[in-house]
């Protein structure tokens, strides 16, 4: 058969393939360009950017757990000005899709960043990370309340010239309600899952492994939860879903697409092997050839009972 069509379209933006690298695990691309040709990627998602620099949490910020890791980076970032001056010019030239991830402590901070990015050349999509702990809500994420999610989505859309992906936190009882709120607020796409709140205790020292006590769990250990949530969200909304959480191989990526994802994103796996995104792209193509599939997008939601 002729070659597989690997293109996917997310909110009107054509990506050369459905493989994206996840926010916070890829800097702004520069470091991994030493290992791989970024132009082969569907897109790179930059580290979460706030209106001003954020300090993040003290060390230790990393703990290993079986089949994954916990992190409490605390969204350390240099702020939108430095990002636009230093990081975006590099990413824009990298030849892949560019997604900019936006963070804030409260809604106004998100809007300020989105407003700054409004109209900036070379940004294909915005990803609004509504998993950040919200100061006014006592540290609870904005993304846990459907009404707030809908309002934040609507306002981001008002300020943004680029299409908006809302990135959901899995730390909710019903992901379908949050996905529906994003769609109602006018989101162009959703992505999930962000990391799952967890904890590790160092039993020898009888203290917390992380400075922040809790941290976000990611890696292969979260994958079954992520696949389930992607499935539920994709059945609820008609906007595209970007699936992530524990993808290490092309087989994992296929699973997410069958569950309903239009594209997939790779996070922790980059740390273990920077060549994983390329292996996933090649493996997805091989899978399609093996199964006689002409276009990778046919996999989206193709799971059946």
């Amino acid at each position: 058969m002729t070659d597989v069509n690997m293109q996917v379209v997310i909110a009107g933006v054509t990506l050369k393939n459905p493989v994206i690298t996840s926010s916070g695990t890829y800097g702004a691309g520069r470091e991994y360009s030493e290992f791989i040709d970024l132009s082969r990627l569907g897109a790179v998602t930059a580290k979460g950017i706030a209106d001003v620099p954020w300090e993040g949490n003290p060390a230790p910020r990393i703990a290993e757990v079986s089949g994954g890791m916990l992190n409490c980076i605390g969204l350390q970032n240099p702020g939108v000005d430095v990002f636009l001056e230093r990081d975006l010019p590099f990413l824009r030239e990298a030849g892949c899709g560019v997604i900019v991830n936006v963070v804030g402590h409260e809604p106004d901070e998100y809007y300020r960043v989105v407003d700054r990015l409004n109209g900036v050349q070379g940004i294909d999509l915005l990803e609004i990370n509504i998993s950040c702990p919200n100061v006014k809500a006592g540290g609870l994420a904005l993304g846990t309340d459907p009404a707030v999610v809908e309002e934040v989505t609507r306002n981001c859309k008002r300020y943004a010239s680029q299409p908006c992906i809302m990135k959901l936190t899995p730390n909710v009882t019903d992901i379908r309600a949050i996905a529906a709120a994003c769609e109602a607020g006018g989101a162009d796409a959703i992505s999930l899952i962000n990391s799952i709140t967890g904890m590790k205790i160092d039993i020898e020292r009888q203290t917390f492994a992380l400075s922040n006590r809790t941290g976000g769990l990611s890696g292969p250990c979260v994958k079954p939860v992520a696949v389930r949530m992607v499935y539920e969200a994709a059945r609820t909304v008609s906007i595209p879903v970007i699936g992530m959480g524990g993808i290490m191989t092309a087989d994992d990526a296929v699973e997410f697409m069958l569950a309903g994802a239009s594209a997939v994103s790779i996070g922790m796996a980059n740390f273990i092997d920077p060549y994983v995104p390329l292996k996933v792209i090649d493996g997805l193509r091989d899978y399609c050839i093996r199964h006689g599939i002409a276009s990778v997008s046919e996999l989206t939601g193709a799971v059946h009972a």
Partner: peptide, 26 residues
């Protein structure tokens, strides 16, 4: 320090510095 990526992207391995760092401006 504890590390995850080893190449500078995850910001997991930070140490406190006396001046503003070049990367994150904190």
């Amino acid at each position: 320090e504890r590390m995850a990526c080893g190449v500078g992207v995850c910001l997991g391995c930070i140490c406190q510095t006396t001046g503003i760092d070049e990367h994150s401006h904190v």
